[in-house]
């Protein structure tokens, strides 16, 4: 049983390279005919032969002497650009291959290295890493950004030249914003555009001003604060602001009426006085006639009461104190 016919293991660390040999070419060989036929393989040697594109995954790489470079071919097929140790010799330790090998492999530091190879290595690595970091953090400086400008000024002496080196200054992205952050910027509408008109020739007099004057509103029913409200404002309020300018009053009729009323009044008063005077006279006359008889009556009554008292007083004398 061949191991190739076994199912692929479920968990493998290394994916094996799928090798599919290309379909036979016209000359019944994998390799190009000129490579096989020629006695001198160097003559028209291809660098590498890409096999049939549909089925093959293997790209052959050749050594300078015309043999297939298996390690390179295999690493190329595995998709990793690296070199590998592929010869049998590599698997035998150096100490066994060379039994008298001297164990001397000193490592150098930057200070002890005789040449500048380590220095160069460190410097180049540093540069590579700095470039990568700059790319990551976005502080890369563009090459075309720098411009040189000739500086022309009257302050310069004859023959003296100055150049200005203009570079775009990279803004620090971590700086706080320069504008003030405001809420609801959209809600505040822009002011309306001004309406432009010709100036009117009309003169604004006091009448026009008064006409436009709107009196303060006063209620006849409500005055919660208890202000003193002048009468004219009350009147104005009562009339609904309609009577202010137009007082429609008939003075003539009013004076005639009031005069008539006054006359009638004084006439009535005179008549009443006369009536009173007559009545008073009549009463006086009556009083003077009736007085004497009344006094006589009263005297008679008093005498009678005295007589009754004298006759009854003996037994019922009032006690003396």
């Amino acid at each position: 049983m061949f191991s190739a016919s076994l199912p692929k293991p479920k968990h493998t660390a290394i994916d094996s390279i799928r090798v599919v040999l290309p379909k036979k070419l016209d000359n019944q060989s994998i390799l190009p005919r000129n490579l096989l036929d020629s006695n001198d393989p160097q003559a028209n040697l291809p660098k590498s032969v890409k096999a049939d594109t549909q089925n093959a995954v293997l790209q052959l790489v050749f050594n300078p002497d015309g043999s297939i470079d298996y390690p390179k071919t295999l690493t190329l097929a595995s998709g990793v650009d690296t070199s590998v140790q592929a010869t049998y010799e590599d698997t035998i330790p150096l100490k066994i291959r060379y039994p008298r090998l001297k164990h001397h492999f000193p490592a150098y530091t930057l200070e002890t290295c005789p040449d500048d190879s380590l220095q160069r290595c460190v410097a180049e690595t540093k540069e590579v890493i700095m470039n990568l970091l700059a790319k990551v953090s976005g502080v890369e400086e563009k090459v075309g950004d720098v411009t040189m400008q000739q500086y022309a000024s009257s302050g310069l002496k004859a023959g003296e030249t100055k150049h200005i080196h203009i570079t775009n200054l990279k803004e620090d992205p971590m700086l706080p914003p320069k504008h003030k952050l405001r809420n609801n910027r959209e809600s505040q509408a822009a002011p309306p555009p001004p309406v432009l008109k010709a100036q009117s020739a009309e003169k604004i007099t006091k009448d026009i001003k008064d006409k436009w004057h709107i009196p303060s509103s006063v209620s006849n029913w409500k005055n919660n604060q208890g202000f003193t409200i002048s009468l004219d404002k009350r009147v104005n309020a009562a009339s609904g602001g309609a009577q202010l300018g137009s007082v429609d009053f008939n003075f003539e009729n009013f004076s005639r009426l009031s005069l008539a009323l006054e006359n009638a009044d004084s006439k009535a008063r005179k008549e009443l006085e006369e009536k009173h005077a007559i009545r008073r006279q009549m009463l006086q006359q009556e009083n003077t006639e009736g007085d004497s008889s009344r006094v006589r009556e009263l005297l008679e009554k008093a005498r009678q009461r005295k007589r009754i008292d004298e006759s009854e007083d003996q037994p019922n004398k009032r006690r003396q104190y």
């Binding site: 070199s83 590998v84 140790q85």
Partner: peptide
């Protein structure tokens, strides 16, 4: 590291 590639794989 300079070329950012795996120079050699020992398997």
């Amino acid at each position: 590291l300079r070329n950012q590639k795996c120079a050699l794989t020992l398997a």
